[in-house]
C-alpha cells in the first residue's frame, strides 16, 4: 500500500553544507556512475553527443546568486536530490504501490517492476527529485545508495552514498537524522540546518546548512591609502587630460 508509515525506525538522509560546496558536480557524476549500473534500470542519456543532450540524473547542482541589500553578491552552489520526506506526497499519489517509504530507515524507493510510468509522483514532488527515464519509461530517483550503505561486500568507508563518499569538499554528510545524538543531527543543530519549501508540508529528512556569514575584512594594509584610485577631480596633467579628452567631439563629459 502506498500509504505512508506513521513513523520510521531511522530517518536516514543527507545534510548538505551550502557553505562548503564548491559546485564541482563530482557528486552528480559519481551518483550517475554508481546508479546507472546498480539498483534498478540504468540512467539513460538521449543525444549524448549532440547539441541537444539530455539524460536522467538523480542529483543535480544548481547555482544561485544571492544579493544582500548592502553587501557584495554571493554565489551559492546548491546540490539537490530526493529529500526522503517524512510526509512524501510522491508516495501517496502512486496508483500501483510502486512508490514506497521504508519503515526501517525511511528511504523512499520505487519498485520499478510495478511502475507504470504515469509520472504522477514526479508531479507531486515539489523538488524535482524524480525523473522518468526516457529509455526505460520508469521513474528514477535517489535511493540513498541503498545498495551501498548496507553492502558488506564493500569496505566500511565505502558504505555511504556515492555522492557523500566522493565529495572533495566534505559538503555532504550522511546519517540518521531521527537520532538527535547522531553526527548529522548535531551538525544540523549547530549550524541551523533548514528545510527546503517548508510550506509544502513535506517534512523533508535531508537538511541544508546555510552559508556562514561573510567576514567583514578589517583595514590591515598601511599602504592602502596611498594606493587609492586616481581622484575623479584630477589636478595637474590628469586634470588637463580629462578636460582635453572631454572637449573632443563625442568625448565623455
Amino acid at each position: 500500500m502506498t500509504t505512508l508509515p506513521t513513523s520510521t525506525d531511522k530517518k536516514l538522509g543527507l545534510v548538505i553544507d551550502l557553505d562548503t560546496c564548491v559546485g564541482c558536480h563530482a557528486c552528480v557524476v559519481s551518483c550517475k556512475g554508481w546508479n546507472t549500473e546498480n539498483y534498478g534500470a540504468p540512467l539513460s542519456d538521449q543525444n549524448a553527443y549532440s547539441g541537444a543532450a539530455s539524460g536522467t540524473f538523480l542529483n543535480r547542482v544548481h547555482s544561485y546568486e544571492v544579493q544582500p541589500a548592502d553587501k557584495a553578491a554571493q554565489l551559492i552552489h546548491f546540490p539537490k536530490s530526493c529529500l526522503h520526506c517524512e510526509d512524501a506526497p510522491c508516495v501517496t499519489v502512486c496508483p500501483t504501490g510502486a512508490s514506497y517509504k521504508r519503515v526501517e530507515d525511511g528511504i523512499v524507493l520505487v519498485n520499478e517492476k510495478d511502475c507504470i510510468g504515469c509520472g504522477l509522483c514526479a508531479w507531486a514532488c515539489p523538488y524535482g527529485a524524480r525523473e522518468l527515464d526516457a529509455e526505460e519509461k520508469v521513474m528514477k530517483k535517489c535511493t540513498l545508495c541503498v545498495d551501498r550503505i548496507y553492502n558488506t561486500n564493500l569496505p566500511e568507508e565505502d558504505r555511504q552514498p556515492a555522492c557523500v563518499r566522493t565529495c572533495p569538499a566534505g559538503a555532504r554528510h550522511f546519517g540518521d537524522l531521527g537520532d538527535p545524538d547522531s553526527d548529522v543531527s548535531q551538525l544540523v543543530a549547530e549550524r541551523g540546518g533548514f528545510d527546503l519549501m517548508p510550506e509544502q508540508g513535506t517534512k523533508p529528512v535531508n537538511k541544508y546548512l546555510p552559508p556562514r556569514p561573510k567576514d567583514v575584512e578589517p583595514e590591515f594594509d598601511i599602504l592602502a591609502p596611498y594606493l587609492e584610485p586616481i581622484a575623479t577631480d584630477g589636478k595637474g596633467f590628469v586634470g588637463w587630460l580629462d578636460k582635453a579628452l572631454s572637449a573632443l567631439p563625442g568625448g565623455a563629459k
Binding site: 552528480v28 541537444a52 539530455s54 543535480r60 553587501k71
Partner: peptide, 29 residues
C-alpha cells in the same frame, strides 16, 4: 508562499536569482 527564496532557503541573505542551471541542455523536469 512558495518562491525561489523558500525553495532554496537562501531568502534570508538577500534576493535570490538562478545564476546557472545544473546542466547545459534540457531535462525531463
Amino acid at each position: 508562499g512558495t518562491s525561489l527564496a523558500s525553495a532554496t532557503g537562501l531568502g534570508g541573505i538577500g534576493e535570490v536569482r538562478a545564476f546557472e542551471p545544473p546542466h547545459t541542455g534540457t531535462n525531463y523536469l
